[in-house]
Every structure is written in structure tokens, then in C-alpha cells.
Simulated assay, not measured.
Amino acid sequence: MGFWSGLKAIVVSVAAFLGLTSNEACFGGLGCFSNKAPFDNAGGYLPQAPADIKVEFLLYTPQNRAVPQVISADAAVLRACHLSSIRKSVFIIHGYRDNPYASWVTDMKDALLSQTDVNVVSVDWGRGADQSDYDQAAANTRVVGALIAQLLTALRDFRSLNYKDVHLVGHSLGAHIAGYAGERLDPAGLSFEADPEEVRLDPGDALFVDVIHTDAQPLISLGRVWLIYKCKFCCMRGFREGIACDHSRAQDYFTESITSTCRFTASWCLNYDAFKRGDCPCGKSPCVSMGFYARANATRGKYFLDTADKSPFCLTRNSL
């Protein structure tokens, strides 16, 4: 965050604290959003209105793999679309300053459609994510999550969608959007780390919460956390480049896990030092698959694995 944007965030926070700015924004059927604690994590910013964020839901199915149908919570739109309630439905949610046509989103969508009979919904919140102030984008995630929950409720009501067949895949701020969506139906560390569970992705947001961390230190404690250290060293050619590569490499791992015959097998371990010493081999410790084929019926905790420094990333020695 630059000096001026940082100063602006401080001014907004102080103004909110002193009651000089509105501490609540209400948007019709979505309800009201406050910037009071614990939702003061985004520099005091309130989310923008849905009309400003302009979220679109782009539906891809085996009937329309290349050109999406734009769907909404409108009953007539949902009844006319290609979505099938007997298929699994995967929502792909991009992060800060990203968009639904980024190569990683397209690659993940194509991998899913090539591998299984599935509905894929790419969530376009690019207008809300493309903010000069990260905190404003972080605040907007709450509205995006609410809109996803609204759509899922409509799909349940009008297309008999079962929530257990829904998989929300979010990167960076998209992971927290997934958390907000899941929380309403009952996943980035910046602006969320160490905050109360109401404002971040947590184990109570879904039947199964699964996180892939590719930058050395876990930021939040969840049902299962994948820790992959190899990428930390293969990407770190410069500070800014290293951070970006670490942060985005999870996208590549998840996409490869969809189609690869090699399973990203990780072992449960207390910490990385124990993993490096070989204290947690499969058989002695629980081992499970990372990525698309991760399942909820496994021991909760931190799982570790190594990867290659370029595609294919999965190492056969780590395969089940």
C-alpha cells in the first residue's frame, strides 16, 4: 500500500471511529453491511453498492464450453439456462485486480469441463476488485459473497440444486468471498489475518473448508491447510515477483490436480521441520490428496508436500 492510499485508509478509519462517516450501507434484499468491529478490518471502508461492483455470473456447461451464459437469481433466467442440478457445480472466484478471463480461470474451467460432467460458474466481480485501495476491494467481498449466496438460494428454489453438490473455489480475496457466501447459506491474508471468524474464511463456512497456502506461513487456521514450500524457493527471484508467484501458484496446483493421474499427496505433520526430517511418512501419518480430489473424511490439520519447480508440479513419489 502506497503512502497516500495508506493515509486515506487511516483517515477513513478515524472518521468511522468518530462517527463522521456512515457506518452502515444497506442494499435491498442483501441486507446491511457495517464497518463497525469486527468488520473494521478493511480500513473502515464500507462495501460499494451491487450496481457499482457489477457482479456477473458466467455459466459454462458441456453444452456451452466456450461461450458463457450470463445467469442471475431471476427465476426465468435460471429455468432457461443450461445448468443441470444432477451435476456438480463449481464456482471459480478470482481475487484482487483479477478478472474471469484470466488464463488461470480459463484453464481451470477447461480442465473441469474436460474431466467431468460439471456446471462451472465463473464469478466476475472485476469492477469491485479493480480498486486502487486494496481495503475497498476487501470490503466489497462481503457484497459479492452475499450475491453468490443469493444465486445459490435461487438455484435451490428454482432448479432443485443441492448445496452439497456445490464447490466454491476462490483465490486470494476470492477465498474470503467463498467464506462469506457459505456463511450466509448455513475462501488473501491482508485485512483478514487474525481477525474474528465473522470476517474471514473459517471452518464453519461450509461442510468442508480446504485451503492451499503457497507462501510459507499459514495466515489462518482452518479445517485443512496445505503447505507447499518448494514454490517459495523456485519463484523468489525478486521480492515483488516472488510474492506474486507464491500467491498465484496455488491456482496452478489446483488446476493440475483436476486432470493429472498423479495425485498431490500430502502428509499430516505438526510442522515443517518434522516434515523435512521425514517424521511423517504415509502410513505413519494420515495422507490425503490435495486439490480437486480433496475429501472431507480426513484428519483436520496441516498437511505438507513438495512440488516440482515447473509443470507438471506433482511429484510421483508423493502420489497415492
Rank of each mutant, 00 (worst) to 15 (best):
D306F: 13
V144M: 10
T307P: 04
A76W: 00
A42K: 09
V90S: 12
V143H: 09
P312H: 03
T141R: 04
V105G: 04
D40P: 02
A137K: 09
R184G: 02
A175I: 05
R263M: 05
V209S: 13
F304N: 00
L227D: 14
F239K: 06
D165K: 04
N140D: 14
Q115P: 00
A206V: 02
C287R: 09
G170H: 02
G174P: 11
P281N: 08
G43V: 07
S260G: 01
E193M: 13
T116A: 09
V225N: 15
F27A: 11
V209Q: 07
D186N: 14
S257A: 03
L222E: 09
G28E: 01
C245V: 01
A308D: 10
A149M: 02
S85M: 02
G223A: 08
S257M: 07
N99Q: 09
C314M: 07
I228Q: 15
P187M: 08
V121Q: 02
I10H: 06
R224Q: 14
G291L: 00
V123S: 10
F158Y: 15
E241T: 11
A25T: 10
D110E: 15
Y45I: 09
Q251M: 08
I177L: 04
V121T: 13
D124E: 10
L270E: 12
D74P: 04
R249T: 13
I212F: 02
E197P: 08
N99Y: 10
V77I: 14
R200Y: 12
G28Q: 01
F27T: 10
L83E: 06
P100M: 12
K88T: 08
C235D: 03
P196K: 14
A138V: 12
M236C: 02
V105S: 14
D246K: 03
A298D: 08
A111G: 01
A51Y: 07
A102Y: 03
S311R: 12
C262T: 12
K164V: 10
L7C: 12
S285Q: 11
W4S: 13
V121F: 09
T255Y: 03
D52H: 04
H247I: 02
S285F: 01
S5W: 06
C245W: 04
P203T: 04
F33W: 06
V11G: 07
A244L: 11
V67S: 14
P203C: 06
D309V: 01
C26W: 11
V143Y: 07
F313M: 03
G179S: 10
D135G: 13
A138K: 08
L222W: 03
